[in-house]
């Protein structure tokens, strides 16, 4: 199986070629709570995640809400 390299939350990661954002959320175990996903500075909304295929060298951020004042 061929893989691609992405930068996920600042760290390099290999994922299967052709993986979508939705696939990545499963791989990263981030599918159990609401998250925001940003790919190359663009927000990927939940209804776009099944069709958004990740490319080699994509910069991906998966974000949640934590405590803050």
């Amino acid at each position: 199986m061929s893989t691609i390299g992405i930068i996920l939350n600042g760290e390099r990661r290999e994922i299967p070629a052709g993986a979508t954002v939705a696939d990545l959320l499963c791989i990263a175990d981030a599918g159990r709570q609401p998250v925001a996903v940003v790919v190359n500075e663009n927000i990927v909304r939940p209804d776009q995640r099944d069709s958004c295929i990740l490319q080699d060298e994509d910069q991906v951020e998966i974000l949640v809400f934590a405590g803050g004042g």
């Binding site: 990263a28 709570q33 609401p34 974000l63 949640v64 809400f65 803050g68």
Partner: peptide
Amino acid sequence: VTVALRRFNREQAEDDLFGPL
């Protein structure tokens, strides 16, 4: 209430406040 954005971390999944709030 105020909240702050943070990178998701699987090891600290219980820190996500969206669900409890």
